[in-house]
Computed example of a mutant assay.
Amino acid sequence: MSQPTPGPVDDGEPSGIGNGGESGDARTGRRGTVVWSLLGVAACVIALDLLTKTLAVAHLDPMKPVEIIGDAVTLRLVRNSGAAFSMAAGYTWVLTIVALVVVVGIVRYSNRLRSAWWILGLGLVLGGAMGNLADRIFRSPGPLRGHVVDFVSVGWWPVFNVADSAVVCGAVLLVVLSLLGFEYDGSRTGWAARRETAGDTDA
């Protein structure tokens, strides 16, 4: 008598479902949404940065600052060979390479994001980095040595632009999220976790 041939083992998991009960297609779709959201934020920053720099170059005279609120807030056209807020002047090619590394790192890291606030923060940093990177690549005196256009002067603060503001705001947001315990993958630790637990208890 021949023995019955054993069939495939049914492990109780539907076909195509991976860890966490989520299909591969669902994970791919979610990663795509995260990446496009990140790039959307960055694109808005880049567009605004390019528009304001173009207007600044076209209408501002480096020798004649435009007063907005007396001497406290002025529009002052400056060509910056350094990093944000005129730091590290003279190291333009090094800063260009650093910016490229930051951009690549953020894009590669993006498919691990699950938090909308982290997407916003990293999108701001990415857009700001790419905005100033475009200046370093395409503006004079030459590729990888281009000077960044800065035009906003507030009090004693160094002259800056939209890209600088986006990088700073994004970085501050990410630091605050980390300190409060809102993690990039959507999980919560520290204060955020305690607050969530207290909310569940009250409910």
Rank of each mutant, 00 (worst) to 15 (best):
L39D: 05
G146W: 00
G40M: 13
L120N: 01
K53W: 03
G190F: 07
G12V: 06
D202E: 15
T52D: 02
A116E: 03
G190T: 07
G16I: 01
T96L: 07
G40Y: 12
E13L: 15
V102A: 08
T189K: 15
M63V: 11
L38E: 08
G12N: 05
W191E: 05
Q3A: 11
D135R: 06
S2H: 13
V45I: 15
Q3P: 00
H147F: 12
L174R: 07
V107Q: 02
L124A: 02
N19V: 14
P62H: 02
G18I: 05
R31G: 10
A192S: 15
V78C: 00
R145G: 11
V102W: 01
G40A: 13
R30D: 10
D11S: 07
V125P: 00
M1E: 07
P6L: 09
T92K: 06
R31A: 15
S165T: 15
V176N: 06
R194I: 04
G186C: 11
N19S: 14
P143M: 11
L48I: 04
M1V: 05
L174W: 05
R112A: 11
G199P: 00
T33L: 14
Y184K: 13
G105E: 02
L120W: 04
R194A: 13
V102N: 03
G142A: 09
A83T: 03
G90K: 02
V159H: 00
V57L: 11
R27D: 12
D200F: 08
G24L: 08
S165G: 13
L144R: 06
R136E: 01
T197G: 10
P141F: 11
N111E: 12
P4K: 11
M87T: 11
A47M: 06
D71Q: 14
D49P: 00
A134G: 13
G24P: 00
A203Q: 13
P14V: 02
V149P: 01
T74V: 12
A56T: 02
L39V: 15
T189C: 09
G90S: 01
R145H: 15
T52L: 12
G12R: 03
W36H: 05
P65I: 06
N161V: 03
P141W: 11
A26V: 08
A203Y: 07
V102Q: 03
A83H: 01
N132K: 02
T92D: 06
V159S: 02
T5N: 13
